[in-house]
Amino acid sequence: MNLWVVLPVLAVMALLRLLKVGLLTWVLVWWGALYIGMRYGLAAPAPQSVITLYMSIVTLSLAAYVGSSRERTEGVLGPMIRLMSEKRYTPLLVAIALLIPGLAGYNAYLAAGLREEPPYFSRTVHPAPPPQITVGEREVDLIRSVNPYRELEESDPQAFEEHARAGREVYYENCFYCHGDALGGDGMFAHGLDPLPSDFTDAGVLPNFQESFFFWRVAKGGPGLPAEGGPWDSAMPRWEQFLDEDEMWDVLIFLYDFTDRTPREVGEFVNE
């Protein structure tokens, strides 16, 4: 929730309550407050289609409320009729009469200035990997492979530490630009990328997949994605052209170590 928007709106409404304003003002204020709340008050902005739907419902409901009793209808129509008929309100009436086509014109101006949008492509975020890939000279079986250095965590912690340190160097020399200082997917270039770089701190990423999956991603990058993954949308480079296999396994050791996660076991599949 965007408190900078919600709190002032609530404050204005509280003030109007104290001032005991009339029904017409309240109707307009409620309409405006709900629109502003929906449009600007949510942390993740709602799509326009939903806002249109909700505001149509609000409009119908307010109309039903106003129309459902003589007193309320009077309370809303009365000031409007007075505005239109009494001489002292003529300047205000003229201002409103100019404002309405003015708003319509502004709306048309905004509609004409719509940015070009690329067609929406619903990509699979984690597509199924191929059974094996060729990295350099070697064939890597993606179904049954494990990280060769993973076992060092138990058997030789010191060597494990070294691999993690080596991986850290690889990360901060190559990956942090997009994936961020703290592996949050918020690196300095992330703002220009669509799709966004993976957030390794998210619980749905590292622990849900075998390490061989991420080895594939690192080695083959965006161009290595299948059609459903949108290969030419992803900016992930093919690191096999820059790193050797050991460096790639090392950086995976680092990722899991930094975020304190364990990879999915081989033979365990996503839906079991």
Binding site: A46, Q48, R115, D194
Partner: peptide, 9 residues
């Protein structure tokens, strides 16, 4: 929800 790509982002 019916949304444009910018809204999806």
């Amino acid at each position: 929800l019916i949304s444009t790509p910018a809204e999806v982002r």
